[in-house]
Design a protein around this nucleic acid. Sequence first.
DNA 1: CAAAAACTGTACCGCAGGTACAATAAGGCA
DNA 2: TGCCTTATTGTACCTGCGGTACAGTTTTTG
Lengths: 205, 205
Amino acid sequence: MARGFETRQKILDVAQEAILAKGFDATSIEEIVANAEITKSGFFYHFKDKNTLARALIERHIVVEDDLFDELFGRAKELSDDPLQIMLIGLKLLAELIEDMPGGHPGCIVATAAYQDRLFDREVREANKRAVLGWRSRFRQMFDEIEEVYPPNDSVDRVALADMVSALLEGGIVMARALNEPLITSRQVYLLRSYVKLLYTPKEQ
Amino acid sequence: MARGFETRQKILDVAQEAILAKGFDATSIEEIVANAEITKSGFFYHFKDKNTLARALIERHIVVEDDLFDELFGRAKELSDDPLQIMLIGLKLLAELIEDMPGGHPGCIVATAAYQDRLFDREVREANKRAVLGWRSRFRQMFDEIEEVYPPNDSVDRVALADMVSALLEGGIVMARALNEPLITSRQVYLLRSYVKLLYTPKEQ
DNA sequence: CAAAAACTGTACCGCAGGTACAATAAGGCA
DNA sequence: TGCCTTATTGTACCTGCGGTACAGTTTTTG
């Protein structure tokens, strides 16, 4: 059991690196099997086609990203009891984390899938959707908690606000890639933080 | 001359629609030539390979998007002399425009290229970069003009702020595609508008 | 009306995804 | 120890697509 699992993980590791660097289609199965030091037959033993590989990658990605958010905002919760402060600290930690990534954020498989939609089957798209909806409910809840304490300084759709975190991350990654300026992504997170601050910080009288 | 130009445009139209719907690789040349009602030879008469097609699409996209921004913010300028109001009106017009698109914003070729980077050659990536830098300088200038009149309520990197327009558009499109909720993109533009408003509207005393 | 531009048709190559299936190697357990 | 299952290799092959080559045909334009 353990032997097969390790091979599977190695395939996923190798594939993820290549796909984020070059795109899904530009990454050939033959290249993956070469770098994973297995054979083509070995690959198809673990994944029946490229679609299945994509789905496995997305599913693994969701778990990793979720754990990361858990850790970041968990640490933020240790540092403050105030829901607004927790959000602001969490966003700062997130920005710093992205900033420290060598070469910038490696990119998001969700966006890769979103832009090559018909290439994937229904199950891949569903997995993708679940990931994005998970982030939505996570941040939605945090903004709900903020609004229980702080009235917003502008009327906003809270679902859209929750989505803004993901949107700015995804958009930031696209921009960073397009311009080859890795720092763009973290800068966008800082701007989001600035917005949240302005939106919920009570006006001095 | 006119005949060749029309065929070329038709190829670009057909290709753009298919690529935005399915991704670059999932769109075959044979499919394009079938829908454009020409032959494979005809295609390769106009574009020497798929790369050249991609570059032409990106270059055309830049012009269309630029014209659109010109028109939107031009109209905004007719409605107000105040730089902040011009931005707010322009963003509202943009949001409304995206909202009215049947099925949501069709998607951005820039992001498609960004996520399939190594698939394209240097020239395509350069064209892509030029597009994004063009938007940066456009919005940067607008924010500069705002700051000449209004001191910001939070210290922000103005380049990042200019990039935020593109980032939220790109990110919003990714989200809209991933969730199949076309309205997400325009909602994100409304949030950006809200941020700009909070950032530059003077505090009442 | 001739030359250039804009195509069509056919035939072909190489590569990558994917199938089929037989053979082999490596643990788990009785 | 031997057997069964799981993991993996090897080989051979089919398909579709990007791309080439190139000769022939139509259309436009000077």
